Amino acid sequence: MTLYDVVTLTVKIGSNAQVFESIKASGDQSGSKLLGCWYSDIGVLGQVLVLRGFESEAALVSERKRMLLEGNPFGCGECVTDVKIDSYSLFPFLPPIEPAVHGGIYEMRVYGTKLASLQHTIDAWEKALPERTQRSPLIGAMYSLEGAVPRFLNIWPYASVDERSRIRAEAVKDGIWPPKGGPAHLTTMESTICVPAPFSPLR
């Protein structure tokens, strides 16, 4: 799978458990695979994020239409006050995202880039990632297919917030991250620290 979406649900206060049960019960849809479910812990609070992979572009579009027309995302619409859906394509040199247990926290980082800078960014990441992922694994990096573009999402798991800070600081100090020339092409930066739901395939 190289096509993904992230469904961000803004949920009513105190409804996380109910929302999780509904998402778990929904499971995989036709042509899609549930890969991760998290709630925001640092950043914009009150959000539940769902990552899904798709077998094809047709499957992604079909599932998007179904969700919009039903108007009841994951069967928990009564708990939801806002929905945002973003579609992504995996950086071409990366392997498909697979379920795994990493523990702790996940960081969702979204960067905007200058026009005509996306390919440069992908190339820079391909060169820099082998050394960077010796410090901590990367779940995936993918560029947005819609909305405010160009921008890309990268997902990193860590054992804790303290471990994240230590690893990132060491990578910068050692000159292996960020990718050489990468920051000059960025326009915006956004980060959310998330905690996996108990049933999340990525957790």
Score class of each variant (00 low, 15 high):
198 P>C: 08
190 E>A: 14
180 K>D: 15
197 A>V: 13
91 F>H: 06
98 E>H: 01
78 E>M: 10
111 Y>P: 09
126 E>C: 05
171 A>Y: 03
6 V>A: 09
109 R>P: 01
13 I>N: 04
139 I>Y: 01
28 D>K: 06
40 S>P: 02
199 F>E: 00
187 T>P: 03
110 V>K: 00
74 F>M: 08
181 G>T: 11
192 T>F: 09
82 D>V: 01
126 E>M: 09
174 D>H: 12
117 S>M: 13
84 K>S: 13
122 I>N: 04
200 S>C: 07
179 P>F: 07
141 A>R: 00
2 T>R: 15
129 L>V: 03
119 Q>G: 01
26 S>Q: 11
112 G>E: 14
193 I>N: 05
135 R>K: 15
13 I>K: 06
108 M>C: 09
181 G>P: 07
112 G>C: 11
115 L>M: 13
80 V>G: 06
41 D>H: 15
163 E>G: 06
19 V>N: 00
124 A>K: 08
199 F>K: 04
59 A>E: 07
127 K>R: 15
72 N>D: 15
119 Q>K: 14
182 G>E: 14
20 F>T: 02
96 P>T: 05
202 L>F: 06
196 P>V: 09
50 V>L: 04
76 C>H: 01
145 L>S: 10
177 W>N: 01
160 S>Y: 11
34 L>M: 11
54 F>V: 06
22 S>G: 14
152 F>L: 08
69 L>F: 10
119 Q>S: 12
195 V>I: 15
122 I>S: 06
163 E>F: 11
176 I>G: 02
181 G>H: 08
111 Y>A: 11
159 A>N: 12
